[in-house]
Design a protein around this nucleic acid. Structure first.
Length: 509
RNA sequence: GGGCGUGUAGCUCAGUGGUUAGAGCAGGGCACUCAUAAUGCCUUGGUCGGGGGUUCAAGUCCCUCCACGCCUACCA
C-alpha cells in the first residue's frame, strides 16, 4: 500500500458565507487527514475556492470592485473555515492563482492535442432571469420550467469536449473499480445515467471573460468543468512536479451529492482523455436538513456554523456531525440531538471517565502515575479491548469514511472502561489495599492513551488536553501498536480539570 | 413517466433465510459514591409500512400496493 494519502473538499464557490454543508465536508476531510497523519501516512489535505464565472463577475460589478478584488475578499471567508472548525489543510487552492491557471491550460492542451476538443455552436433555449439554458423537452408550455419566464433561442460558438466517447470506458472502469464511486446507491445512479447515453460537454464561454482564457482563442474562457475540476491536480504541481502521481492515485474526493456527476463522470472522462490515472475514490455525502425541513433563507432555519461553534464548541459540533448520522446519508440537524450528544457521549461517558479516574490518582496517588505491577486476569481482559486490533478496526472505518462507526468502536471501549472501574471499585480499595487501587487506576490510564489518541482526529482541540492530563503526548498509532505499558510510572500529573462540560439550556428556571 | 433507494422499539439506527428480532438515547426501578446529579446493573417498549407468494424456515428472497427521499444532461 502507498504511504501517501490525499483528500480533497470541493472548491467552494465564494458567492456567500460558508454554510454548514461546507463546514461538514471540510470537517470530514479533516478527520480523515488527521487520522492518516497519525498513522504515519504522508498526507495532503486540500481545500479551496472556485473563483471564476459570470455570477462572481457580476457580483463584483455590483460592489464596484474588480473581479479579482471581489474574489480576494470572498475567498477569505472560506479560508476562515480553517479557524471556525479547526482544519488542518495543507494547502488552499484558488482558481485565480497562476499555478492553477497553468494547470488548467495544460489540461486544455492535453485534451485538445488528443483530439477530444472541437468547436461547434452551442444552442438552446435561454431564460435571462434564470440565467439558464433548457432543452426542448425541459420546457413547460414553451417557457422556463423553473420560473415560467419566456425563453429565447440562443446560439453561441463554443468548444466541446467529446464526453460521448467515454460512456463504455467509464462503465468498464466502474465495474473494475467498485470502490471508485461511493456510497453504493450513488454509484447506481451514476451507472444508470451513463448507460442512458452521454452527450458532449460545452466547455467554453464567450459571453463573459472572467475565467481562464482558452489557449489560442482569447474570445473564449474555459467554462467551469475544465477549470474547476483541474484544481485537484494543480495543487499537486501537475503536470510538472515529480511526485504528483504518487498523491493523485490516492486521491479521495469528498463532495456533496449535488456535484456527483461532475466528479464521477466528467472528471474521470477528462482524465482518461488526458491520460492521467484516475483518483482512488469519489465519495458523495448527504445533505443536512434542519429539524426535518430543508434549510432555506426564507424559512430562516439555516444553520450557521459560526453560531454553532460559538454556542456549543468546535469539537462538540465536529463530533455531533460525524457521530449522529452515517456519512453518505442525509442528516437532520437538531440542536436537541447535538446537546444530547454533548452531554451523554462527551461529558458523561468520556469526560467524566477521565475525570473520575484522574482525580482519584491526583488525590490518592500523590499526583503521580501509579505502578502497573502484575496484572490480574480481569485487568488483562479489559486491556484486550485496547490492543492493536482496536486501532485497526478504527482505522478500517476511517478509511472507508465510516466516521460514525469509527466513533462507535471508540465508545464501546469508553463504556467498557466505566464498567471496569465500577467492577473494581478502586474507591473501596483505598484503605485496605492502596496498591491494588493504584494498579486499577493505572490500567485505566493505559486505556486512556489509545482512547485519547483515537478521538484526536475528531476532537483536535480537546484530545490534546486529555492526553496532557494522562501524560501521553506527541504519540502516533505506531506507538499504540506497541501495547502496554504506554506510560511511565511515577510521572507527575497536574490536577485534572473537566474537558467536556455539560451543556445547560439557558432558560428561566 | 422511467430509474435508484428507504420504510425495524418514542428517537437514531444494526440486523451474510434458520434458535425467544438487537444497540445507543429517551422512560421506569435498583446499586454505588471515585466523578461533570456522573457510572454500573435490571427493566418497559416492536403484528420488522400493508397484502400476497416461494420455503421445513422470511425483517432477510419474489410479486403487488402505500408513504417518503434522490436521480433523470451542463445552478455550489
Amino acid at each position: 500500500m502507498s504511504n501517501k494519502a490525499y483528500i480533497t473538499t470541493p472548491i467552494y464557490y465564494p458567492s456567500g458565507k460558508p454554510h454548514i454543508g461546507s463546514a461538514y465536508t471540510s470537517v470530514a476531510c479533516d478527520v480523515y487527514a488527521r487520522a492518516m497523519r497519525l498513522d504515519g501516512r504522508d498526507t495532503k489535505f486540500l481545500t479551496g475556492t472556485d473563483e471564476h464565472g459570470l455570477k462572481l463577475q457580476r457580483a463584483a460589478e455590483n460592489e464596484g470592485l474588480t473581479p479579482q478584488q471581489y474574489v480576494d475578499k470572498m475567498s477569505e471567508q472560506f479560508r476562515a473555515l480553517e479557524d471556525i472548525v479547526t482544519l488542518s489543510n495543507d494547502d488552499f487552492i484558488r482558481t485565480t492563482e497562476p499555478r492553477h491557471e497553468a494547470a488548467a491550460t495544460a489540461m486544455w492542451n492535453k485534451l485538445n492535442d488528443a483530439g477530444f476538443i472541437y468547436k461547434d455552436t452551442y444552442a438552446g433555449w435561454y431564460s435571462v432571469p434564470d440565467e439558464s439554458y433548457y432543452t426542448e423537452e425541459e420546457l413547460v408550455d414553451g417557457k422556463s420550467p423553473d420560473s415560467g419566464h419566456p425563453v429565447e433561442w440562443v446560439e453561441e460558438e463554443s468548444y466541446y469536449f467529446k464526453l460521448s466517447a467515454f460512456g463504455d470506458k467509464l462503465l468498464a472502469y466502474y465495474e473494475k473499480h467498485p470502490e471508485f464511486i461511493q456510497p453504493e446507491s450513488r454509484k447506481n445512479e451514476v451507472i444508470a445515467f451513463v448507460k442512458s447515453g452521454l452527450r458532449d460537454l460545452s466547455i467554453s464561454r464567450s459571453t463573459f471573460n472572467w475565467g481562464v482564457p482558452v489557449p489560442n482563442d482569447d474570445k473564449h474562457v474555459m467554462y467551469v468543468w475544465v477549470d474547476a475540476l483541474t484544481n485537484y491536480l494543480s495543487a499537486l504541481g501537475w503536470p510538472e512536479s515529480a511526485d504528483w502521481a504518487d498523491y493523485f492515485q490516492e486521491a479521495v474526493h469528498v463532495i456533496g451529492k449535488d456535484i456527483l456527476k461532475f466528479h464521477a463522470i466528467y472528471w474521470p472522462a477528462m482524465l482518461m482523455a488526458a491520460e492521467v490515472p484516475l483518483p482512488k475514490q469519489v465519495y458523495a455525502h448527504g445533505f443536512w436538513v434542519a429539524d426535518g425541513q430543508k434549510m432555506s433563507k426564507s424559512k430562516g432555519n439555516v444553520i450557521d456554523p459560526v453560531e454553532m461553534t460559538e454556542t456549543f464548541g468546535i469539537d462538540q459540533l465536529r463530533y455531533y456531525m460525524l457521530r449522529d448520522v452515517s456519512f453518505g446519508q442525509d442528516g437532520d440537524f437538531s440542536k436537541d440531538r447535538l446537546i444530547s450528544r454533548i452531554n451523554t457521549d462527551l461529558s458523561n461517558d468520556l469526560g467524566n471517565l477521565f475525570q473520575r479516574v484522574l482525580s482519584m490518582v491526583f488525590k490518592n496517588c500523590e499526583g503521580q502515575t501509579p505502578d502497573l505491577g502484575e496484572l490480574t486476569s480481569e485487568d488483562q481482559e479489559f486491556l484486550n479491548h485496547v490492543g492493536p486490533e482496536f486501532v485497526d478496526e478504527y482505522l478500517a472505518h476511517i478509511e472507508k469514511l465510516e466516521f460514525h462507526k469509527a466513533l462507535d468502536v471508540v465508545w464501546n471501549v469508553v463504556r467498557a472502561a466505566n464498567k471496569y472501574m465500577d467492577n473494581q471499585q478502586p474507591w473501596s480499595l483505598k484503605k485496605e489495599n492502596p496498591e491494588r487501587m493504584g494498579q486499577v487506576l493505572r490500567v485505566l490510564m493505559e486505556a486512556f492513551c489509545p482512547i485519547s489518541l483515537l478521538v484526536e482526529p475528531f476532537l483536535p482541540n480537546s484530545a490534546p488536553k486529555l492526553q496532557a492530563q494522562v501524560g501521553f503526548k506527541g504519540k502516533t498509532f505506531a506507538d499504540l501498536r506497541k501495547g502496554t505499558p504506554l506510560l511511565e510510572t511515577g510521572a507527575k500529573l497536574d490536577k485534572p480539570e473537566g474537558v467536556f462540560m455539560r451543556y445547560m439550556k439557558e432558560e428561566a428556571a
